[in-house]
Amino acid sequence: MMTEEILRVENLRTTFTTSAGEVKAVEGVSFTVNRGEVLGIAGESGSGKSATMLSIMGLLGDAGRISYDSLSFMGENLTPESVKSIRGDKIAMIFQDPMTSLNPVLSVGYQLEEALRRHKWQGNIHGRVAEMMTRVGIVPADERMRQYPHEFSGGQRQRLMIAMSILCSPELLIADEPTTALDVTVQAQILGLLREIRKDTGMSMILITHDLGVIAGESDRVIVMYGGRIMEEGTSREIFGSPSHPYTRGLLHSLPKADGKRERLIPIEGQPPDLLNPPEGCPFVKRCNEAMRICLRRKPEALTLSETHKYSCWKGAEESC
């Protein structure tokens, strides 16, 4: 299969100005997404996963500033202006908390139809909304369109968000913790639904989640973030089969054994870095059990293990020279 790149991000930086100082939420993140693939993004809370996506989508608000070397979608440069016209249309996003993304005082049908009108949908708006609601299993669609968000369960609201996001047949869906608030059985339904939609439409997806099980089950490629940077990147098999960054390895060791063997867990000791005062060198240095003196002072460069597998760590750099 030919890989066709649809999103390219190079050297993205995002800074928030807060009363306590500058927060460097994203520090030089680069990645690509290919057509039809699922890129999973894992990482500690506060590692910059959401900030990266909001930066790309131009949704940061006033507090954030971004810079980058290049940002393009389907071969066109993305500017704050151009992204507005494709947002919700060619690139759609689902947020972690569906309650904050649906207006409680408007019927869900109205809200979905409004989304289509905003994107100047040519065709039967009501019919399209009904079709997509049926697609995500909210039936009978005609009746349920008249209901308000509080009349739906958490899982149903998340399915409504999915219906809304795929209304305009996007090329890329960015799903930020789409199932974190849900039970595993409902999570399995939602992930299954997203998988079917991808199969039908060839849509690409960026899936952000802290659940490594979900990442393993859904992703073709995986990015592992820590302290605003990409620590490791590879195919799902590379990341889970031969994790190379000490943080990735630490994360996988923290999990209970899948075969139920009751071996003591091996946690990553310490706390995530304070982004107001980030370490000068590797962001992981304070918690890394393989850290060397150079890790404190200088940021490691990315090391290449295969065409798809890269990681940023001094350990490997020392060994290879």
């Binding site: 595993v184 399995a188 299954g192 490594l212 990442i215 393993a216 089950g217 889970f240 899948a258």
Partner: peptide, 17 residues
């Protein structure tokens, strides 16, 4: 339905929805 943090095992098992 419990996600398995292992792509190989994950693709082999069957979810009973």
């Amino acid at each position: 339905s419990v996600p398995i943090p292992d792509p190989e095992k994950s693709s082999q098992r069957k979810i009973i929805p």
